[in-house]
């Protein structure tokens, strides 16, 4: 029994010592660390200390079967139901007979010890668990209210801002894309219209060129036909002239031969006399013209 008490005291002292050491460490760090990073570490240490401090009583409250037996036995000793461990064991072994007071005490201790084997209530927690769990919850809630929620809020605000910016950027990009698409469609439309105009113009020019070439070809054909006709007429006229000249030459040559063959000395004399008469007659005419009229 004495050993059990010592063991429980030692456990409490150990827990207190641990808590004190951690608090000292936390206070020491708080004094020496001014840097923001160290402040964060401090916050983390405080949080850890608080959780551990809250957990220690819970761990202590969370008894094992052996611990529970020891605690029941210790309680029975402290209540003065038994004077020694042997009496306790004897009353417990003869509890089924129920012949004496010791036997009744033994049955009561046995029931207490059997209570240690009973499973805890699964719905309603133990009071100390509620207390320590509530304290831990409050500490955690305070810490979260102090640091966690603002950080989460800032993160969420930053996230919202980022999402808003992203949405704005997306809207801008969408607007820009729509504007570019509109411009592209406009350009495409203009290009199609321009291409259609060019094609139409090319078709018109080709048609005009075809007409011009056709007209030019017809004009050239007409000109060549006219030239050919004129050349044929000229050749015909030239041939007629050449033929006429040739016939005339032949006729005159023939006449010359006939005349030359037919001229005899008497004819020569007659021709010379006629010539002299003509010269004389022209001289008489000139004389009369000179002497008579002007």
């Amino acid at each position: 029994m004495a050993n059990t008490t010592e063991t429980a005291k030692l456990a409490k002292l150990d827990t207190a010592r641990h808590t004190k050491a951690l608090s000292l460490f936390a206070s020491t760090m708080t004094r020496h660390l001014q840097h923001s990073l160290m402040k964060s570490l401090l916050v983390l240490s405080v949080t850890t200390t608080a959780i551990l401090a809250a957990a220690m009583p819970a761990r202590a409250a969370g008894e094992t079967i052996g611990g529970c037996v020891l605690e029941k036995l210790n309680t029975s000793f402290e209540d003065g139901n038994y004077r020694s461990l042997e009496q306790m064991l004897t009353s417990t072994a003869s509890k089924e007979n129920g012949k004496s007071d010791d036997d009744k005490k033994g049955g009561t201790l046995e029931k207490k010890l059997e209570g240690c084997l009973e499973a805890p209530d699964t719905i309603i927690p133990a009071l100390d668990e509620v207390i320590w769990g509530g304290l831990a919850f409050l500490v955690l809630l305070g810490f979260m209210q102090w640091k966690g929620f603002p950080a989460v809020k800032r993160a969420m605000d930053a996230r919202s801002e980022k999402i808003r910016n992203d949405l704005d950027a997306a809207d801008d990009a969408k607007t820009s894309a729509q504007r570019i698409q509109t411009e592209y469609e406009e350009k495409l439309k203009n290009a199609e219209e321009k291409a259609a105009a060019i094609i139409e113009e090319a078709r018109a020019k080709a048609s005009q060129l075809k007409l011009d070439l056709q007209a030019q070809a017809e004009a050239e054909i007409a000109e060549k036909r006219a030239n050919a006709s004129a050349e044929i007429d000229a050749n015909r006229s030239q041939a007629i002239d050449d033929l006429r000249s040739e016939i005339a030459t032949i006729a005159v040559d023939a006449a010359e031969q006939v005349v030359a063959a037919s001229i005899n000395p008497e004819t020569h004399r007659q021709l010379i006399d006629d010539y002299i008469d003509q010269v004389s007659a022209s001289g008489a005419a000139n004389t009369a013209r000179t002497n008579g009229s002007p």
């Binding site: 010379i272 006399d273 010539y275 002299i276 010269v279 004389s280 022209s282 001289g283 000139n286």
Partner: peptide
């Protein structure tokens, strides 16, 4: 003939 021609030319020229 030469004399007549000479005379005719004289009259003419």
């Amino acid at each position: 003939q030469q004399a007549l021609l000479a005379e005719a030319l004289k009259e003419s020229l």
